[in-house]
Design a protein around this nucleic acid. Structure first.
Lengths: 249, 249
DNA sequence: GAGTGGTCTAGACCACCTA
DNA sequence: AGGTGGTCTAGACCACTCC
């Protein structure tokens, strides 16, 4: 018995059927009534299941017509964006991490806003290099507020998954994140650690992570070596995860 | 009467209240029972409304605890990712467009896969420069399959919104999209049209758009001038719009 | 016109959080 | 222990699509 929740079981069943090719791209799914009968569930439960696939971009839906398969590639990512290590593991790759430097400093104005602390409050700055199968792919400049800093300092320098270790040690859960994606030229430090030339294009993700209550846990400037990682977004008229924003002036 | 759908009206009401600061970040929302009573709706309808805000990343939700406001900035984007012009207009900015070249060619292998046509099938290639308040910010290299090509050719060269015009002319709706985001160095053409130096970092978005049935309408390589546009993603344990993917080898 | 998804209701039970 | 959200049911009506 893998899943006690019925709508999850139905959703998994459909995901598997799509991945297996039983419903190729362009095929139509059974009607809600058919699915309900097949699983001995009510229509509401079936709708809960298919709306999960809708949100993942796997299927499309229009009133009056049967649901259509849009993509067969799963976005198995639920915890993916939260943790580099968990994402790597899901892809069958080995993630490494190495702390290059770690020191206490005071919060700059922008950081204070993101972390919801006062300007000049103590923060812990950590520079961390992440590797994928031994290759350096990501340089993280992370800032932690005072209340969580000591727990971060206590981690081993080569800690593979910070998210996982903080959860094990303190029970802390990274629940929400906001990510701003753009491109920048590699600076001197970026070039050195990611082993490329100064001025090379890098994919930059500035992110702030919070607990379930919305309390900020960290804010970070992450720079990815191009060619190593691609961000993928699926959207549709029905669901809309992503927003394009003008740079603040 | 703006919205006949009750769950949309309730969601709008909550969005407005959050934007206005009546529920600041960290505040808790009224319970489902309270909202249901206040709006004279059933609990199911209220749940439908709050799950929209959940998907937008505005609020967080945990079983047993009241919902918490995570962010006050709306992601008013429903059609945003589909249309550059519509996105610009939503931000109060004026979008321009200019076709630099347009010609029929044959589909390369990768394009054939993305557009679901056979290799070597005729396709229309369009190179388009998009501007924001007069500044060039985006160079689009778009490929259209044969069935829609003529309608695209018939558009004026300085067409502001291709999405809008195609809808008006042919009733075609861009319903779903898949977007791959990474960073590249500017090539000669990129540098010339976007007015920057060769090798400068650009944000690249490769996207394929389909109709509601999943029929591919276009596939495009879009390159954004850095500093002009930022992509924003909110995610949480509950909803997960985005996937990080390893580059295909 | 039959089928299908979108919306809505009214009630129920449970798991979890807060106290 | 009481409140809250998560799950589930069984019905209903409507708007839309497809034949």
């Amino acid at each position: 018995m893998p899943e006690p929740r019925r709508h999850e079981r139905i959703a998994d069943e459909l995901r598997r059927a799509i991945a297996d090719g039983r419903y190729p791209v362009g095929a139509t799914l059974p009607s809600e009534a058919e699915l309900a009968a097949a699983h001995g569930a009510s229509r509401g439960t079936v709708r809960q299941a298919v709306s999960a696939l809708l949100a993942e971009g796997l299927i499309g839906s229009r009133q009056g017509a049967r649901r259509v398969v849009l993509s067969t590639t799963p976005s198995q990512s639920f915890t993916e964006l939260r943790s580099f290590a968990q994402w790597a593991r899901a892809g069958g790759r080995s993630a490494g991490g190495l702390v290059l430097s770690s020191s206490w400093d005071v919060a700059h104005t922008d950081e204070a806003g993101l972390l919801q602390v006062r300007r000049g409050a103590p923060v812990l700055r950590v520079l961390r290099l992440r590797t994928l199968d031994g290759e350096p792919v990501l340089l993280e400049r992370t800032v932690y507020p005072e209340w969580i800093g000591p727990a971060v300092e206590a981690l081993p320098d080569d800690c593979e998954s910070v998210t996982q270790r903080l959860y094990d040690d303190t029970g802390l859960v990274f629940a929400h994140g906001e990510h701003h994606i753009d491109a920048v030229a590699a600076g001197t430090a970026d070039a050195e650690h990611l082993r490329l030339r100064r001025g090379s294009p890098l994919l930059r993700v500035r992110r702030t992570t919070t607990t379930a209550d919305g309390r900020p846990v960290e804010t970070s400037d992450d720079r990815y070596r191009p060619g190593s990682v691609v961000f993928t977004v699926r959207n549709s008229t029905q669901t809309n995860p992503l927003a394009r924003t003008r740079t603040a002036t």
